[in-house]
Amino acid sequence: MNDDIVLKMRGLTKYYGDAVGIEDLDLNVYRGEIMGFLGPNGAGKTTTIRTVLGLLKKSAGKAKIFGLDSHEDSVKIRRRVGYLPGEFGMFNDLKVKSFLRYLLSLSDVKSEEKMMDVGNRLELEFDRKIKELSKGNRQKVGLVQAFMADQDLIILDEPTAGLDPLMQQRFYELLREEKDRGKTVFMSSHVLAEVEEVCDRVAIIKEGKLQVVEDIESLRNKVGKKLIVEFSEEVSPGEFRMKGVNELEVDDKKFSMVVTENLDEVIKKVSAHSIVNMNLETFSLEQLFLRYYSEGEA
C-alpha cells in the first residue's frame, strides 16, 4: 500500500511569521485516485499545494511525492508533476502556442500531441495572443499546460475557475480519462458539485488544519441522512430519542431529524404511525461542507 502513496504529508506546517498558513497536516493521496481538497478562502488550500511543490518553504513536517522529498528533490519531482496554480500570469505578448511550447521545452518534452489534444478538446485558440484571451481562455491555457507533459501526478488549484459549464464538463471527462490511465489528481476546489462529481475522496481543511479525509460515500454515511416526516396523528417525540438520531426538531406533527445510525429502527417507528408526507434525503457535499463549517465537526 505504501508504494501506492503518491503524495504524503506528515505534520506539514507553514507559518507566515506568526500567522498560521497550515498546521500539522497528515494526508495521503493514492495512485490512481482523484482527491478533492475543500475549504473556504484562506483555509490553507493554496498554501498546502504550494508548500508541497516547494514553492513555499515548509516550517515543519514532511511532504513526499513519489517517495522524494518535496523540497530537496523538487526538480526531480517536477519532472513527474503537472500543476495548475490558482493564480498565474503568462507572457502576454506571446501567442498561446509559443508560450505552451516554451513550458514544454522547460519540461524537456518534445511531443506536442497531448498539448494539441487537450487544447482542442477545450477549444483553446492556439494562435491567439495571450493578452487577447478572456479569463476563461487563460484558464484553459493553464489547464492545458498542467496536462500536456503527461505527468503522473496532476495538482490543480481551483481548476474550473472561469470555465463555462460546457468546458467544465469537458474538463471532468478529461479528469476521468486521466484517472482511467492510472494518473493521480489532487485538486482544490470551491465548487462542491464538481468535487462530488469527479473525486473519489475529499479532504476538508479549515483554518489551516485538516478536518476530515474521507471517501465521499462514507462521508455521506457518517454524516447521515435527513428524514422529514409529517404524521396525521399526534406522535411523542420521545419515540425518536434513540442512538443515531440527532437534531430532532418537532413542529406539531412534523418531525425533522438527522439519522446517522439505526435507520432501519427509525423507519420502523415511523411506519407504526399514519403518515401524511415523508422525505429521506442524502446530504449533498455542499450541505456536508456547510455542516462542517457551521458546527465544527459532523
Binding site: L53, R79, V81, P85, F88, M90, S107
Partner: peptide
C-alpha cells in the same frame, strides 16, 4: 509581479 513564477517553477527548472 506578473505571477509567472508558479508556472515557471511547475517545470523541472531549478
Amino acid at each position: 509581479e506578473e505571477k509567472r513564477m508558479d508556472l515557471i517553477f511547475s517545470t523541472p527548472l531549478s
